[in-house]
């Protein structure tokens, strides 16, 4: 059984379709040049514009389609088409504009379309790269499981630290209290905490075992290994959150800008037909 992803779906069916569309659009653009030069209001311009508008609507419909679980067909096919035809759309729209740009609603719509498509590219990139890395990072563990284990490690470390000198106790307590995992969108996207107290604690603990009593040394070794384990758990949890946020982050541009595009496009069409 041959497995396909969204790009090689049905042997690049939609890629081929997109290429054909672009070629036809180009051919039309070359062959039918209006006397006054290319612009959106020419015969070819209206044609390309109508096709583009319909395609934009169809692209937006994907948001509905992927949640219509009762409908027929596969979402995978829709996404594949969404990607390739969406990319083709930029070319067709550019041809539709006849390369006339300015500070107006028409160019705004064009700009919004580009933002939507480019954010989509980021989405593709994320979909290609992160799933594999997520699996490598998490294995069979779940985020909840990791957080639980971190909490346990915290409890254990602090119990042992109570039996240690104050400086060690302070470091461990600080590490347990001040470490945060994925607080704020920026930290989620970055996947690390600057000057992470957990990393610092591990670093400092390495050098702090020298002046301890024999009894405490044993505890120190135990504490150290707990802190190291805890540190790697924290890292993995942050990584996982990072992948998750990166997988979803581009949608915060893609969807609002798509809605803005729909509004701007409506305004553009109304402007063209009523106020030309």
């Amino acid at each position: 059984m041959q497995r396909g992803n969204i790009f090689d779906y049905k042997n690049y069916l939609y890629f081929k379709l997109a290429v054909v569309m672009i070629l036809i659009a180009f051919a039309a653009f070359m062959v039918f040049e209006p006397a006054v030069g290319h612009y959106g209001g020419s015969w070819i311009g209206y044609g390309l514009g109508t096709i583009s508008a319909l395609m934009v609507l169809w692209m937006a419909w994907y948001g509905v389609r992927k949640r219509r679980y009762r409908s027929a067909g596969t979402t995978q096919g829709w996404l594949s088409a969404h990607i390739y035809l969406g990319t083709a759309l930029t070319v067709i729209v550019t041809l539709h504009s006849g390369f006339h740009f300015g500070f107006n609603i028409h160019t705004l719509a064009y700009g919004l379309l580009l933002v939507v498509v480019v954010s989509g590219f980021f989405g593709n990139y994320a979909y290609m790269i992160y799933p594999r890395q997520m699996t490598e990072n998490m294995g069979e563990d779940s985020l909840d499981g990791l957080l639980l284990r971190i909490a346990e490690a915290n409890k254990l470390a602090r119990q042992i630290a109570l039996l240690m000198p104050d400086d060690i106790n302070n470091i461990v307590t600080h590490a347990c209290q001040a470490t945060h995992i994925g607080v704020g969108i920026l930290e989620q996207l970055r996947g690390f905490q600057p000057n992470c107290p957990s990393a610092l604690a591990v670093q400092k603990l390495t050098t702090m075992g020298n002046h301890l009593s024999t009894e405490q040394r044993k505890l120190h070794r135990e504490l150290y290994s707990i802190m190291v384990r805890r540190q790697s758990l924290v890292k993995r949890a942050r990584q996982d959150l990072m992948y998750r946020s990166r997988l979803g982050f581009w949608l915060y541009f893609h969807v609002p800008f798509a809605i803005a595009l729909l509004v701007a496009m409506t305004a553009h069409i109304i402007a063209v037909f009523f106020y030309w």
Partner: peptide, 13 residues
């Protein structure tokens, strides 16, 4: 009709 929805709803196959 159309088979398992879990498979069909997966956007990435």
């Amino acid at each position: 009709t159309g088979g398992p929805v879990c498979v069909r709803a997966c956007p990435v196959g």
